[in-house]
Design a protein around this nucleic acid. Structure first.
Length: 434
RNA sequence: GGAGAGAUGACCGAGUGGUCGAAGGUGCGCGCCUGGAGAGCGCGUAUGGUCGCAAGGCCAUCGCGGGUUCGAAUCCCGCUCUCUCCGCCA
């Protein structure tokens, strides 16, 4: 969440942010709730202070009497205060109810307020306003008509949509043979790259998570319908971002440990509500896919630089696989709810004839850290401050798999295996039809 | 799933109704001492909220949520988690 104080100190900035992201939030109503909350709090605290004072006096009187050897029962000590205490009790009970209501309403609304975009975020609400930062490698020229990956994969016998749909329903996919091996190789390759060369620590987290973590990273309460929930229990993770971001829930981290860089492979489960019929061909949009995620905790002042390094780390995978891509800076409205600054990497898909998102890298300022209460301490005696969090795909494996098929296809329908993956595939160099 | 034990500050650990936000220790910071280091000595060391220009005041927090009481770390109820034993299991 954003700093609740902003509603008092700079409500216009919040209004600007909400509008920039194209979100419907009544900021004035939240400001009013916050004021009501504070007013109640003051009233309650004043009465509680008086109550405590009386109790202390009673305690002191009893103690004093005991010291002097007099006999003073608690009832006698309390006698003169009874009336005032009763009055206070009634008032406090009443005010506390009001306070709880105001607080709950305020906090509830706060969860629906998105993060503030960075000041230099390109304005806009749609994909068309995203800004291309760089393009790496021209899309390859083909002397034949390149096929989309769903045709290639099926023809090569390494993807089986029908079997997956039969056993699990629409928008599931299954790989087999060299296809399954290549997916596994991609995971291993990406993890090796990030751990050995980019300094990330590998994490193998649970694939189920509690709602507090989903609230922490910003998926809940707003995007409940996108998630799979186990019967009355935890949810299946929609991305490794959730467990990774929750790694230091409630902790205060020593500053000299920062930045903390983590990478994790996990499957991702998404209901993709509302996307039925949209781009459903192939393995681009499915309910379950593999992803290697990158995630960092750092100090606020390092956040921007760390994000750019993280984007580089994600791009390194595409470069190592020699896949043409471009880097897009997302406009305000295209960024996720919790993000302040975001870049998408889009890989060229010759068979589909377009760029497809394969990584999304965002930084979240203290938005997630505030919800998860993850802080750091600069030095002994310093106040803890919220850490900055960021993450990015490095990369989505299914889409990378599809991109390899499409970019490495040959006229005879075979696919060359990228050099970088061969050590992970027992040295295989081609996937041949038949 | 069954039985038992436990959860206190960065850490260890005291505290079973009354100035307890919490003894003592460790760690850490500052100072003294020293040629220097160590030892020793002194002082200081939670978080959040709220009011205040500030100094500081006030409120909350001893796993979480309720209750009893004028007053709860301490008593009662529910929950969560950890540990031990039993059962089951990849």
């Amino acid at each position: 969440m954003i700093d609740p104080k902003l509603f008092r100190t700079d409500p216009d900035k919040v209004k600007w942010a909400v509008q920039a992201k194209g979100v419907e939030v009544d900021v004035d109503a939240i400001v009013a709730l916050e004021e009501a909350r504070r007013d109640c709090l003051y009233q309650v605290e004043q009465r509680r202070a008086r109550k405590k004072e009386i109790s202390k006096q009673i305690g002191a009187a009893i103690g004093q009497a005991r010291k002097e050897g007099r006999d003073l029962t608690p009832e006698q000590a309390q006698a003169g205060f009874q009336h005032e205490q009763d009055a206070l009790d009634t008032e406090i009970a009443d005010l506390e109810a009001q306070l709880a209501e105001a607080e709950a309403a305020f906090e509830q609304r706060l969860l629906y307020v998105p993060n503030l975009p960075a000041d230099d975020t390109p304005p806009g609400l749609t994909e068309a306003e995203n800004v291309e930062m760089l393009a790496w490698r021209e899309p390859g020229r083909f002397l034949f008509e390149p096929k989309p990956h769903w045709e290639l994969g099926v023809d090569l016998g390494i993807i089986d949509f029908e079997a997956a749909v039969r056993m699990s329903g629409s928008q599931f996919v299954l790989t087999k043979g060299l296809g399954a091996l290549m997916e596994r190789a991609l995971i291993a390759f990406m993890l090796d790259l990030h751990t050995r060369h980019h300094g990330y620590l590998e994490i193998n987290p649970p694939f189920m998570t509690l709602d507090k973590c989903l609230i922490g990273s910003g998926q809940l309460p707003k995007f409940e319908e996108d998630l799979y929930r186990l019967r009355e229990g935890p949810y299946l993770i929609p991305t490794a971002e959730v467990p990774l971001t929750s790694l230091h829930l409630g902790e205060i981290i020593d500053a000299d440990r920062l930045p903390l860089c983590y990478t994790a492979y996990t499957p991702c489960f998404r209901s993709e509500a509302g996307s039925a019929g949209k781009e459903t061909r192939g393995m681009i949009r499915v309910h379950q896919f593999h992803k290697v995620e990158l995630m960092k905790f750092c100090k606020p002042e390092d956040e921007r630089a760390e994000l750019m390094k993280l984007v580089d780390d994600a791009e390194a995978v595409l470069k190592a696989l020699n896949l043409p891509f471009r880097r897009m800076r997302l406009c305000a409205g295209e960024m996720s709810f919790s993000a302040a600054e975001a870049y998408d990497l889009e890989v060229w898909m010759p068979g589909m004839g377009k760029y497809v998102e394969i990584s999304s890298c965002s930084r979240f300022t203290d938005y997630q850290a505030r919800r998860l209460n993850t802080r750091y301490r600069e030095g002994q005696g310093d106040k803890p401050r919220f850490v900055s969090t960021m993450n990015g795909s490095g990369l989505a494996c299914g889409r990378t798999f599809a991109a390899i098929l499409e970019n490495y296809q040959q006229e005879d329908g075979s696919v060359i295996i990228p050099e970088a993956l061969r050590p992970h595939m027992g040295g295989a160099s081609h996937i041949l039809p038949g």
